[in-house]
Write a protein that binds this DNA or RNA. Structure first.
Lengths: 341, 341
DNA sequence: CTGAAAGCGCTTACAG
DNA sequence: CTGAAAGCGCTTACAG
């Protein structure tokens, strides 16, 4: 592996006996050059092993062809979330189609408010930003286009959310109509970095609203917090089972939690739904093949992910004006009645 | 969201009544400035909302603080691989520690050989590069540091691999000693993009060597190809079960495949290990909690991932010289005897 | 069709 | 402690 010094456009121009402009044109405006000149330049470039410097090009053109993907936690955390993986996979697919690259930007509660400014990207896709997030101010005044997913509704930026309140309302109502009067809510505990997840906040609000509208006391709901994803299930189940009075059902802020609780219940020999009804949220593929199959609130993550990234790219390419974006986009939910509740 | 034009260092200098040099120093060499000047500059910068342009800075300094992560397939494919997720999670953790960002570079068989040159990164981490890969030539002559993981051994670059041949040899020998004389090998079929996965190639070689060394005919092994990861299990199982003569055991090129086959067997009502013994490879956490727990060949992906990225960063920062890298690093394997074989 | 020149927005010896 | 100047390596009106 030879670490020779870089061959520049200037070198190629000198050797080929043309101007730097001509060399640049050979790559970026071939039709402006005679066939002969162009070929000579390209040959010389190949001989010298010339490769245009991507950073210099970016500085001159103002385009990085890169999307900054701002994720709400460290990579090893988010990768354990199946819903996030669907999202990331679709973002990747659409970026491939449009020849954009993804720059991963982890942004927990400890991220500096000016972090975005230091990143070489044409625009940003931000996930799960709460109004209290350190980047909140940076969002409003970003000189580059950005798009939000699963975030707070207070921002002046295109937003792609789920009808969390409505979906949660539906799920809670379903359990109430089945006669449940003591219902646990399993959700994420406070994060050490202080980050609040907007989605969970809204789902909880939806559950509460349903209880209120049914004329039942708030104590009908018992909120149980745990950290973690699938792995939090056993702990979450134990906490629920120890509740006084013991709930007959649990509303989970996500399917991963619900699947974990299913595992926890099985290990404890508690039968679902007979002794404990379990309802998830998200409708990830795994929820269909669990034992028992999960009753859950489905929304279309694939379509929404694609729409969000597509919008961002259109904004960057100025095919779309910010004023013309239909926002907020709110993905509808469908209750999937299966066997766990 | 206001899309005002960018405030430059020049603007700050003008308003603050100092030279551009001074403004730059306020950020990059504070001690070279008097307290007063520095404060004035920083205040003006804050007032004007000045943010240093990352690309300009990169062009001037030559540092992007970005690692190019070259992945062997599209994002939505690799994300379905639990072993890859462990890898990616660790890369993310180490990059966080060193304040580097990850730029995702999907590189299937259709990637252009010059792709790396167009990417703004300080160095590259490449996964699963076979000698026939389009990027093969680019690797040897890269002007920027790079490190390989799970790749071919022909390259002149730091390499972090697993003892695939040895581990596979061990697994096959284990089955042969148990008396199995007809053994299927479940591995990845040819990819549409023509990419060959070095790891699977080597594991197959290891299985074959064990059979040869045992003095048995090559037909002892029946190789079965399928596409996909977990989802390929059912198809793979069906193919195996239809084999003539029917094998009594299967060696899987990875744990994901093995887990899929376990599922396929269960659905078909075939009991493991009684009717079919199943051996995996990798020792991912999921292999310990499957039904039945998987007999597999473990290697330490976490340690190896960290070592690889750490080496790359040390190379980039010139804390380490290429000649001083211990390469190839070959992660040892341990056979984990559990219940599936 | 081709070239001289200015510009993208920084950093960093160098000189004072 | 502070500034004028050159440089990082491209692109792109503009003029011919």
């Amino acid at each position: 592996m030879t670490r020779k010094k870089r061959v520049t456009l200037r070198d190629v121009a000198r050797v080929a006996g043309v101007s730097p402009t001509a060399v640049s044109f050979a790559y970026n405006a071939p039709h402006q050059l005679s066939q002969a000149t162009r070929e000579r330049i390209l040959e010389t470039a190949a001989e010298l092993g010339y490769q245009p410097h991507p950073v210099a090009r970016t500085l001159a053109t103002g385009k990085t062809n890169t999307i900054g993907l701002v994720i709400p936690a460290r990579l090893n955390w988010v990768l354990n979330d199946p819903l996030f993986r669907i999202f990331l996979g679709e973002i990747g697919a659409v970026c491939d189609e449009h020849k954009r690259r993804i720059l991963l930007v982890p942004a927990g509660g400890d991220v500096s408010p000016g972090a975005l400014a230091t990143i070489a990207a044409d625009g940003f896709l931000l996930v799960a930003i709460h109004r209290t997030h350190p980047l909140a101010k940076a969002i409003e005044r970003s000189p580059r286009p950005l798009v939000l997913v699963d975030s707070d509704e207070v921002f002046q930026a295109p937003l792609f959310n789920v009808d969390d309140v409505g979906g949660a309302y539906q799920a809670a109502t379903y359990l109430l109509e089945k006669g449940h009067r003591q219902i646990a809510v399993s959700t994420l505990g406070p994060r050490p970095d202080g980050v609040i997840v907007p989605v969970f906040e809204r789902r909880l609000a939806g559950y509460r609203q349903a209880v209120a509208d049914a004329g039942l006391p708030p104590e009908t709901l018992q909120v149980v917090h745990t950290r973690g994803l699938l792995s939090a299930g056993a702990e979450s189940f134990a906490k629920i089972w120890a509740l006084e009075p013991r709930p007959t059902a649990v509303l989970c802020a996500s399917d991963v939690r619900a699947l974990g609780i299913l595992q926890g219940a099985r290990q404890a020999g508690v039968s679902v739904p007979e002794e404990l009804a379990v309802v998830g949220f998200d409708g990830i593929p795994e929820s269909a093949v669990s034992f028992p199959p999960l009753t859950t609130v489905y929304h279309d993550m694939v379509a929404r992910s694609r729409l969000a990234i597509q919008t961002l790219i259109d904004l960057i390419d100025e095919r779309l004006d910010e004023g013309d974006v239909q926002t907020p986009f709110v993905s509808p939910t469908t209750m999937l009645i299966r066997e766990s509740a």
